[in-house]
Design a protein around this nucleic acid. Structure first.
Length: 264
DNA sequence: TCAAATGTTTGATC
DNA sequence: GGATCAAACATTTG
């Protein structure tokens, strides 16, 4: 489910419910999604007030009273649900004074971490893809080598992009996924920056992409999947030139592109 | 039965 | 130090 637009949507829908609330109790039905043991995690959370809820890349950060931090990464199938109904995939429950927050995760690639400081893995996340300036973005590319798609997926380089939005942004910028960053040039780097901003902003306006079962904290699906131009469109005509969209594997991820609009 | 799925980490190799 | 690649994690779906 979750790349930057989906995580942003979750944060926006869950923040008004959580901020100001107090964590009364917690329940964990899986140790897999926890980085520390359940009783220690519970102890660190009980009685804390939630002061802020924010996003950093694909992480959701809850700042709690006493300087405690709760970091949630949704992995591939994680969901936060406000006052939802617990089911077989419910891995954690936070009971607040004003309602209940469920963490559901089918595949359990997501992680919940509670510590005094912002966790190191969160601190390592690069500039946020939505907030980065054009200057910062092009400067960042100039210092790197390698192919553009793996680079954009690297969260320490740029925070928030995932497989869907990288493919969509590269298509809109007419950049081939295997293009060496060193050969991008000023013009295409600028185009890529613009495409990333446009795709992310439009996707957030749509409440994200619901490609399997993604929903926000209130159970609402997103609609950006209807605006996908290449992702999961293998064999279908390119919306710009009519050439069938191709799929290949790059960085071990399914990669969708138009062989005509995005020349190698 | 096999492949693929919105992600990250780890270890091997160049 | 980096970049690349494969494998692993766990579950569902086609």
């Amino acid at each position: 489910m979750p790349e930057l637009p989906e995580v942003e949507t979750v944060v926006r829908t869950v923040a008004p419910k959580l901020v100001g609330g107090e964590i009364r109790d917690t329940r964990f039905f899986s140790t897999l999604v926890l980085r520390a043991d359940a009783s220690e995690t519970a102890k660190r959370l009980r009685g804390r007030r939630i002061e802020t809820v924010r996003r950093r890349g694909k992480f959701i950060i809850l700042e709690l009273s006493g300087g405690m931090h709760l970091a949630i990464h949704l992995g591939m199938t994680g969901k936060l649900l406000w006052n939802g109904t617990p089911g077989v995939h419910t891995r954690a429950v936070l009971e607040l004074d004003r309602g209940t927050l469920l963490y559901d995760d089918i595949r359990q690639f997501g992680r919940i971490e509670v510590c005094e400081q912002v966790p190191e893995r969160v601190a390592r996340v690069g500039p946020d893809a939505l907030l980065v300036s054009e200057e910062e973005f092009t400067h960042l590319l100039r210092r790197k080598r390698g192919r553009i798609k793996p680079l954009l997926l690297n969260q320490t380089v740029l925070g928030g992009l995932g497989n869907i939005y990288v493919d969509e942004a590269l298509f809109r910028a007419r950049v081939h996924p295997l293009t060496p960053v060193t050969r991008l040039g000023r013009e295409r780097a600028r185009r890529l920056y613009g495409a990333i901003q446009e795709v992310l902003r439009t996707a957030i306006d749509c409440g994200g992409s619901s490609i399997s079962d993604y929903v926000d904290a209130e159970g609402r699906a997103g609609s950006f999947q209807h605006h996908h131009q290449v992702y999961a469109r293998e064999g279908e005509p390119c919306l710009r030139c009519g050439t069938p969209i191709r799929r290949m594997v790059v960085a071990q991820r399914g990669t969708h592109y138009c062989p005509r609009c995005q020349r190698a």
